[in-house]
Design a protein around this nucleic acid. Structure first.
Lengths: 215, 215
DNA sequence: AAGGTCGCTAAGCGCTTGCTCACCCTCCGG
DNA sequence: CCGGAGGGTGAGCAAGCGCTTAGCGACCTT
């Protein structure tokens, strides 16, 4: 419930959104969209959570959809940055895949409120905004596919269907935003470690060195 | 687009819904909810798709939410039946896990319109209806967890975290409903086969006999 | 002190929503 | 030929929606 806690914990997100009133509205919108969904959220609710009158929203954003677009854009930028950093990093393909899944899942769990909006409210965007976002998602797909292809070429992975497995890996990570519950048993780090191990198994990499004894 | 095609292809679903007008309304609601989401769908749109006036909806259903509940209930019953049939079937744990994932994914892909409503519109249900559905989902979780636990006990699987892996397997399968596109490259059967293989790898079962040569 | 700007509000407009109600067909037993 | 019943419609209600507009007070510059 106290998701203001989440959104300020750690690396202090939304710092790129100014002025202060615009950021407060955006954070309020993230919470409301994540709880009820975009269409079930009213502009009055968003403004109320930010401690403002309904009209105040329209000083900083032209429409309710612009709010969603801003949230979606910032979130996708962050998600893509995480994947591309891991994909372009040092180490073997297995190490990079581990890092990519671990950090991608960590972000989806730790910021599941934001991630839920980013990953599941895409259809509510206007067509031209949706196109822009879809492009970012294709680059995320390319980053993961690159790691898999390189791992196969290096003989580290055994993957018969690289595009299909890429899709499955991303799908698995993204869905964390749907089920993860901050009040649940697992910490974001634990889920990241579990998922990194599962994905390494999926690609046929030896699970040694990642904390999973073979017996 | 022509998802009437989908909903009548194969085993002819919704046959349990009578009379005919009630079924037409329900099928129309599935299509509309899947396309736009529950909250963005109007009762006028549903009635229009079924070729009726807006008022006709309320002859067969008390509210719009009752429509969603009926859809969700029937869909969850079907999904649970698929998993429990596979879990209670004959064969080794690996064979049963293969069957469970394959058939569960097949259903989510072939009936992705229905599955999308069933899996992603849960929050729109009234509290008492949601509780009923959550119970069914827990039984789905138990069915998969049972296969995993038996496979570990029999030495077939190597799974350090059975509850966590159960969650991941179900999450992976469910998310098919989000991304699957009938106009895409893969058939539901192909996705089922791919996912069954990936899941067997996740649990550390030898992928022999499922079409994935080790080299 | 005057005047301009900026962030914000109270009030409300035009429209759509879920849902209702009075009425009307068509069918069917007597 | 009648009368009741059940599936259907046209019109519309109260409420709530996204968004606009006129105006207000605090603050800055001159």
């Amino acid at each position: 419930m106290d998701s203001a806690e989440e959104t300020t914990g750690g690396y202090r997100p939304w710092s790129e959104v100014t002025p202060d009133a615009a950021r407060r509205l955006l954070v309020a919108a993230v919470e409301a969209f994540a709880e009820r969904g975009y269409h079930a959220t009213t502009t009055r609710d968003i403004a109320g959570r930010a401690g403002m009158s309904p009209a105040a929203l329209y000083i900083h954003y032209k429409t309710k959809e612009e709010l969603l677009h801003r949230i979606s854009r910032i979130g996708h930028d962050k998600a893509l940055e995480i994947l591309e950093t891991a994909a372009g990093g040092p180490g073997s393909a297995a190490e990079r895949l581990d890092a990519a899944v671990r950090s991608f899942v960590l972000w989806h769990a730790a910021h599941h409120t934001t991630a839920r909006v980013v990953q599941y409210e895409l259809d509510a965007l206007a067509p031209e905004h949706r196109g822009e976002i879809v492009e970012l998602r294709q680059r995320s797909d390319a980053a993961v596919r690159r790691i898999l292809a390189e791992g196969v070429a290096a003989g580290e992975f055994h993957v018969p269907d690289v595009p299909g497995t890429t899709l499955a890996v991303l799908s698995l990570c993204i869905d964390v935003a749907r089920w993860f519950n901050a009040a649940g048993r697992r910490t974001p780090d634990e889920v990241g470690a579990l998922y990194a191990d599962l994905v390494l198994r999926m690609v046929g990499a030896a699970p040694d060195g990642s904390g999973t004894p073979r017996k």
